[in-house]
């Protein structure tokens, strides 16, 4: 196996752009997914009529279908019935759609971990449901669900590789194109693997550190 190092140096700018795009799309998608997930799990927590049934259906559909199909449907299917979305927008919507359901699951587990005494005490001192949520449940549930959120962040970042199925020039798609043009397969794939390691290794280490940190912040144990 031989490597053409000059080619790698020449291709670096392409990978840099692709890396940024990957990080950008993943970050937007993950933030939106956390918001969607929290809203969904709060709706389910209060068992809001009708809405919680809709959320349930959404969760099942999003969790039980592959992202690639969701993206194909958004990108190739919807324009045919009159809804045209750009590739990047499709990617963000797809990632949010998939990620929201996973984040909801993580946050639900966090909310269930809040001890009953906390909620009863909150009620006893006369907090309204909204205040109870805002000051007692959400802050604690958030710290409980950090490990779940972290695992999902890594999962969603990896899922961005699926964006190469639609016309988004992120890491994997850039690699595919470069391989097609220059036929430097080994070099291109080496760069691809290194690209993901650059994003994911620091993130993994950071999340491990964060998990240990938030455990100090937990109340009542």
């Amino acid at each position: 196996m031989t490597f053409d190092w000059q080619y790698i140096v020449d291709a670096l700018p392409h990978y840099k752009t692709a890396l940024w795009l990957t990080v950008k799309l993943a970050t937007i998608g993950i933030i939106l997914a956390i918001i969607v997930g929290m809203v969904c799990s709060i709706i389910q927590y209060f068992k809001v009529k009708v809405l919680s049934q809709i959320v349930q259906v959404y969760l099942e559909v999003a969790r039980n279908t592959p992202l690639l199909i969701q993206l194909f449907f958004l990108y190739y299917g919807l324009p045919k019935i009159g809804i045209t979305l750009s590739g990047e927008l499709c990617g963000i919507i797809g990632l949010t759609f998939l990620g929201g359901s996973y984040m909801a699951e993580a946050f639900r587990a966090g909310m269930e971990a809040v001890t009953k005494s906390q909620i009863e005490t909150g009620k006893a001192i006369g907090l309204s449901n909204l205040q109870l949520m805002r000051y007692v449940i959400i802050p604690q549930a958030f710290s409980y669900s950090v490990p779940g959120f972290g695992a999902n962040c890594i999962f969603l970042l990896k899922e961005t590789s699926v964006f190469s199925g639609i016309a988004i020039l992120e890491l994997t798609n850039t690699t595919k194109n470069l391989m097609g043009i220059f036929y430097k397969t080994n070099e291109a794939l080496l760069m691809l693997v290194i690209g993901y390691l650059i994003i994911l290794l620091p993130l993994t280490l950071f999340l491990t550190w964060l998990e240990r940190r938030v455990r100090h912040a937990e109340f009542g144990n």
């Binding site: 196996m1 890594i154 990896k158 899922e159 590789s161 699926v162 190469s164 994997t172 690699t175 595919k176 391989m179 397969t185 080994n186 794939l189 691809l192 693997v193 993901y196 390691l197 994911l200 290794l201 993994t204």
Partner: peptide, 20 residues
């Protein structure tokens, strides 16, 4: 296998092994 996406693994095995 946790850090590198499955799609990348598929590409790596599919393109690298036959060529080398």
């Amino acid at each position: 296998f946790r850090i590198i996406p499955i799609l990348v693994w598929l590409f790596v095995i599919y393109y690298v092994i036959p060529a080398n």
